[in-house]
């Protein structure tokens, strides 16, 4: 009898610990995928494939950082894919046609992303329109702007400094280093500063946060600005990969980005999750795509598999009580 209660209590403790550490669930999933890859497609572990995977994951993972902030604060941002496209086009135009240095072009698109993010935020916090509707609107408007300023044409970039960012440094693509820097800075912000804490607190119980005198609208605006800026960096990085600005680039990326965040274990209701978990989510989504390509599974089937993974992740979180508020 005593043994029984001891084990059941131990099990409860382990269960609680498991549920309270945000990264564990997605990490379990990722390890499962790595094992699957070892069995099904061992070529997954070839150094050149890993390098390529790191390049591929960068765009989605950078945008997912910002999206994670918005979702943690209790909203959603659907405009990320369009901001990626606009940033891609604008960076290409600034470098190719206005002689901007690649770094100034990055600074410029980050600013533009921030302005779009702030616009999203103000519509949500001041005009009280649900974020789903607001960002669905900006998704369309921003994509339209990308088409207008590019005239619908592709803009090749010949700037060597810009194209050099596509190279590999210490076995890792430079654009992945960019992601790592962003991840470290934003994780520090999220885990260690009071504004970072307020993002999670606002997503967890906005009314309580407001009653305690925290500027909840400001916190939500900040989350949207982060999302805009991160998407802009993602668009710039995509431009590095493509060597050009394509007005239709990033089309539909919002779903991949949101999937990465959710698969990483961030609850769509806000409050729970972390940026590291989001990073794992981005790796899960990209690795699965990579494994399917290596295993020769066709492009159409990939949509189905990715959707199923998203549903499974959502189910796993529901079991853990993450969605129950």
């Amino acid at each position: 009898m005593a043994r029984n209660t001891f084990y059941s209590r131990l099990l409860t403790t382990i269960k609680e610990k498991y549920a309270s550490i945000d990264e564990l669930k997605s990490l379990t999933g990722f390890i499962g995928i790595l094992i699957l890859a070892a069995v099904v497609t061992p070529q997954f572990y070839l150094p050149q494939n890993i390098t390529m995977l790191l390049g591929q994951v960068s765009v989605i993972a950078i945008a997912a950082l910002g999206e994670a902030f918005v979702i943690l604060s209790g909203s959603i941002d659907l405009s990320v894919g369009s901001i990626i496209g606009l940033a891609n086009v604008v960076a290409a135009i600034l470098i190719a046609q206005y002689n901007f240095s690649p770094y100034m072009a990055l600074f410029s698109v980050m600013t533009i992303g921030g302005i779009i993010g702030l616009t999203n935020g103000i519509f949500v916090t001041k005009l009280r329109i649900p974020s789903f509707v607001v960002t669905l609107g900006t998704l369309t408007v921003v994509r339209g702007i990308a088409y207008i300023i590019s005239g619908g044409l592709n803009i090749p970039v010949y700037n060597e400094e810009f194209l050099r960012l596509n190279e590999v440094l210490y076995g890792v693509p430079i654009i992945f280093w960019i992601y790592l820097i962003a991840l470290v800075i934003l994780t520090l912000f999220f885990e260690k500063t009071r504004l970072g804490l307020y993002v999670r607190a606002t997503g967890s119980n906005e009314l309580a946060v407001r009653n305690l005198g925290v500027d909840n609208s400001g916190v939500k605006n900040l989350a949207f600005v982060f999302s805009g800026v991160c998407s802009a960096i993602a668009g710039y990085v995509l431009g590095v990969r493509l060597g050009a600005g394509y007005p239709h680039s990033g089309l539909g990326y919002e779903l991949d980005v949101i999937a990465a965040v959710v698969v990483g274990g961030v609850a769509l209701t806000g409050g729970t999750g972390s940026l590291i978990a989001t990073a794992i989510g981005a790796f899960i989504m990209t690795s699965i795509l990579n494994i399917m390509v290596l295993a020769g599974i066709g492009g159409f089937m990939q949509y189905v598999v990715r959707g199923i993974i998203l549903l499974v992740a959502a189910l796993a979180m529901r079991r853990a009580g993450v969605f129950v508020k």
């Binding site: 600013t111 921030g114 702030l118 916090t125 500027d215 400001g218 605006n221 600005v225």
Partner: peptide, 10 residues
């Protein structure tokens, strides 16, 4: 306010 800070920064 946070929002004013963002506006100023942008």
């Amino acid at each position: 306010s946070i929002t004013m800070g963002i506006v100023l920064c942008l």
